[in-house]
Design a protein around this nucleic acid. Structure first.
Lengths: 349, 349
DNA sequence: TTTAGCACTCCGAGCAAGCGAGTGCGAAGG
DNA sequence: CCTTCGCACTCGCTTGCTCGGAGTGCTAAA
């Protein structure tokens, strides 16, 4: 029906939107009178009261206690985000400011990623974090096998984003520096440009052997590629935790402890954005949708960034459920865009 | 005089020590009665009162307000740490536990450093941070100049701790892969084993030119070494901020904000330990000695760790001034020792 | 020089009262 | 039939108050 949104008639939807909006703005439970006074609803507070009672029955609103105003529930926020709020765009000047600040970072992958998390944390006034590009979405550029002694060496692999990973290897038989150079050249000729994840063990082994090396060298080469692919963890840069202290919901210190702990366990932080990795567009998780009781009054906004066509990492904002979703989505997207552009500065061509 | 400590007679010194000890244990201002009841001082509370008044006049104790107990001042803690407290040693089982937990980290520099900061943060129940080895104290192991195109390449430098840094370079004239290999070999033969900071620009330039290269190549080589030497920042791994929330002194949220901000600005964190870098033994900074009003009710314990004979980095514990200094010094030293040992696992020989 | 006694100070916990914002419901009005 | 008005009621928060406890400094006696 034309005048229904998500099962709510137009007026209910509007009231819900206003309640969420007002609550996000003030942080205080919002009552019927306050609402009619501040917004021109065209109906009296009593009517609003009735509607609010309905919305509460429908699970969109909650009451902290009798005789308090209403507060949005997870479902209320969800509806707001999906259907009610009006999306925001960044102004041209804001875009420019983001771009300018990103220029401060040197052309090094880590620095660019860190700079964008700092920037986003500050602009969003919340905790922001950015995953480094997943290494298996990067493509292989060069490998160099360096001779150290007759039976040992170092393999260094450089990826398209200029990240090098090195691994030591030991061999059973003697080899000369020239042998290693020959193999390096062969590997480069065959695999350069491929995605790291497409440099499969089988082809690597086959090529190594066809250059006259044995199983030991093949294992070393495989290990080097695996090392480059699974580079420790994805790596996350986080920033802006101090802004959370300004939020009234963190006056309770226990909440903060959860956050700090999560911040230090990169694992958990990564799990939070992990399922967003599949989707190629922005995603919002609200309260219990985060899957943890500890985090149940937080929300997470996640936006992918790209290298070329491919989504390679995520920018996220973690803050109180009561966050300005439209604005933060716009900020995250804007930052993601700029980050994507800057990635080309570090590309190894 | 035999029975004077730091200008205090024996009894005053003992009372000061007891007050500090008790305050560290309880966190409550300590009064004369409580002290005589809990500790066997051999004198009455009235006497203790008089002595405390003297200690306050001497600047060792402070009173939060009239009719409250006494609390140590910076000077009081300082005297306690320097002259009064009895040093602690870790038990054999604790040492073993530390060693075991350090074994969980893979043999990668970053992981070992992170593991030790996590471990220390947890054991100390405070914020712990560890600087990565200063790269200019590491020695040079290998350089490899990789040919990409006639006029460009990548230089990869590997240090004794297995850290690789890469830098791209562009040349004015064509060169062959073989030329680059030849130069790599020459550099390795001459400089391998030297400290990075001893690979001076002049010698690098001279050697490069003696291999028949021009100014452009010499500049590229210098840049590569400078890049390895000044590797971004020293790099700091921090952990355990959540423990601070348990301390009563952080119920005030503003204190926390300072800490969180410092935590994110690696710069400030690094400045804190910077002057400890000169000293080769443990150092304690108390309250205002940290040089910042914001941090004036915190203390910092810093202990160096070594690679071979050389001090290459620092382990620090940041917490409330009211911290168990002797215990934390023991923990930090124990962890430093284990960290130093594990560094040999990542050494590139 | 140490101790006992005493008057005084001050913080903080605990309690009661009052206020204000908000609710739900029944009755009146368009 | 939906909306509005009026009203009684609820409940948390703030304010003000009291009171006890811990601690101090001072004076006088041992």
């Amino acid at each position: 029906m034309e005048n229904e949104v998500d099962g709510l008639d137009k007026r209910k939807a509007y009231i819900l939107a206003t309640v969420v909006y007002e609550y996000i703005a003030t942080g205080e439970p919002v009552g019927s009178q306050a609402l009619t006074q501040k917004y021109n609803l065209g109906v009296s507070s009593a009517t609003v009261r009735n509607e609010m009672a309905d919305l509460e029955a429908g699970g969109y609103l909650e009451q902290p206690h009798t005789s308090a105003g209403r507060v949005p529930s997870d479902a209320g926020y969800r509806t707001y985000v999906d259907a009610l709020m009006s999306p925001e765009e960044l102004g041209a000047d804001e875009r420019r400011r983001i771009r300018d600040e990103m220029r401060d970072a040197r052309a090094q992958l880590d620095e660019i990623v860190e700079q964008s998390s700092r920037l986003l944390g500050r602009l969003a006034g919340n905790l922001a974090f950015v995953t480094k590009p997943q290494s298996d979405t990067q493509s292989f550029r060069y490998v160099q096998l360096i001779w150290i002694a007759e039976r040992s060496g170092i393999a260094i692999i450089v990826t398209s984003l200029g990240v090098a990973s090195q691994s030591l290897f030991e061999l059973r038989n003697d080899h000369s520096p020239d042998d290693l150079t020959r193999l390096s050249n062969a590997l480069n000729a065959t695999f350069a440009g491929r995605l790291l994840r497409d440099c499969d063990d089988r082809s690597l082994t086959a090529l190594t052997k066809s250059c006259g090396f044995g199983d030991d060298m093949a294992a070393a080469v495989r290990a080097a590629f695996i090392g480059a692919r699974t580079q420790e963890q994805p790596g996350i840069s986080a920033s802006g935790a101090q802004h959370l202290l300004d939020q009234p919901e963190f006056r309770d210190v226990r909440k903060l402890r959860s956050i700090l702990r999560i911040l230090e366990e990169q694992r958990t932080l990564y799990d939070l954005v992990a399922d967003a990795f599949d989707s190629t567009s922005a995603s919002v998780k609200i309260g219990h949708e985060l899957g943890s009781e500890e985090l149940s009054d937080l929300s997470l906004v996640t936006v992918p960034y790209r290298f070329g066509e491919r989504a390679v990492g995520m920018l996220s904002i973690l803050g109180p459920r009561r966050m300005p979703y439209a604005r933060l989505l716009a900020l995250a997207s804007g930052t993601a865009e700029t980050l994507s552009e800057r990635l080309h500065d570090v590309e190894v061509k």
